[in-house]
Design a protein around this nucleic acid. Structure first.
Lengths: 225, 225
DNA sequence: TATTCGACTAAAACGATAAAATGGTCGAAA
DNA sequence: TTTCGACCATTTTATCGTTTTAGTCGAATA
């Protein structure tokens, strides 16, 4: 049921991506083939509505008025379609967050802006992401790939932010190992906070506290002397 | 499959517990009925070895040389046995952590000591907790109850720690709402860090960085002026 | 009164089997 | 280069009869 070894190839592949990653989760997103885009948007709607399993290739094909076989001209597998769609979403989400963030000067403001933008998007599109949550349960390795890429991207992003802060001497000197572990810890923390606190039932209350969470993760809660 | 509404009663019950909670996850732990303890230790071994589902009431009964019906004199359901066992474990784990923590003076040292103790225990007993991880997948509502109680306890604990720090003026003045949200955020963050970073495959590397993680969550990574 | 047990039940789990649905391939056609 | 219908192999679903197992109950024990 949990064939973890099947994923090794995938992870290696993902590691390669990690090296060349810059400001986009994957290069494929850049491709602008109209049919490809059509497939993706059609599939997205179905996936959000019915989930991964209940959405058949026939459904997707019918949705865009093409034959099932045509899909296989653009994508190797059904999983690839799902993955491409998910990455497209994340990519856009991150691009917006980075754009907003870059308007700020200090690291603290940048970090706050980034987190707030990310979570606001998450809260607004809450119901759309519910399909992911369900998918995680039923089909763990489907998401694993996407998660790996997202983690790799986020860690690189956070590390660069820290380096930026150190250059501006707003962040104290940290070893590479410390920066690495901080990025990892903050990444998983943000993810957990997002899914446990903001996708819960009382997200309205929390929306106002977004900035506070971002700040307290970054500057702590101790007294500044 | 996911009967969330069945859990409302449980959650309400849990909310009641939240009020009277002090330094123990549940009162029942205090009970020292020898047979009850015997059942729990017998069940623990079986649960760890075979998981919740594959361990039958017959097995547990045979293990302690009693009849199956006798178990029902002490516990209402099989789930209750599992829950009691899990809470007993957590209780002990927390008690140790608090004990170690109380040797420290400053909040920062206390927080660090608590986190380090908790995670060290987690790393050492890693394989025993793997049964929980598997159970979460197959039987989500079984763990939900335990998780709720643990969350409630942890949040209260963290809030008290913050108040202690404010009294000692080592933590800046925070509103009750801020303290509340900080406790929630740190709780889920710690849990995520624990399961994603320390239960992963490269926990050896991370063990040394425990203190750094605890500190950076608490005092941040910005420069102190 | 507090505790244990054997006999019992209702519901869920399991196994086997056949039928239907679905992911993916291939060669031809446009 | 792109699309498609026909086709295959595998997985999923449905059914049903059997077995296992969580939980109950009244009697017995101490």
């Amino acid at each position: 049921m949990f064939e973890i070894w099947d994923r090794i190839v995938v992870n290696l592949n993902c590691f390669k991506n990690r090296l060349k990653m810059s400001n986009s989760l994957n290069e494929e997103v850049a491709s602008v083939d109209p049919v490809r885009k059509e497939i993706l948007t059609g599939a997205r709607e179905l996936f959000i509505h019915f989930g991964f399993k209940k959405t058949t290739m026939e459904d997707i094909a019918k949705k865009i008025g093409k034959s099932k076989s045509s899909l296989y001209y653009y994508f190797k597998t059904k999983e690839e379609i799902f993955e491409a769609m998910a990455l497209e979403d994340m990519d856009q989400q991150h691009r917006i967050a980075v754009e907003i963030m870059n308007k700020e000067e200090s690291v603290q403001d940048r970090f706050r802006a980034f987190v707030v933008s990310l979570f606001t998007h998450l809260i607004l599109n809450k119901q759309e992401y519910s399909v992911f949550k369900a998918e995680v349960m039923e089909n763990p390795f489907l998401i694993m790939n996407i998660t790996e890429k997202r983690n790799a991207y986020m860690e690189v992003f956070l590390k660069e932010l820290v380096l930026y802060g150190i250059r501006r001497s707003e962040i104290r000197e940290l070893s590479h190992e410390e920066i690495d572990i901080w990025a990892k810890a903050i990444n998983v923390s943000l993810k957990a906070i997002g899914s446990r606190l903001f996708l819960g039932n009382d997200q309205e209350k929390f929306k106002d506290h977004l900035a506070f969470i971002a700040d307290s993760l970054f500057i702590g809660i101790t007294k500044k002397l």
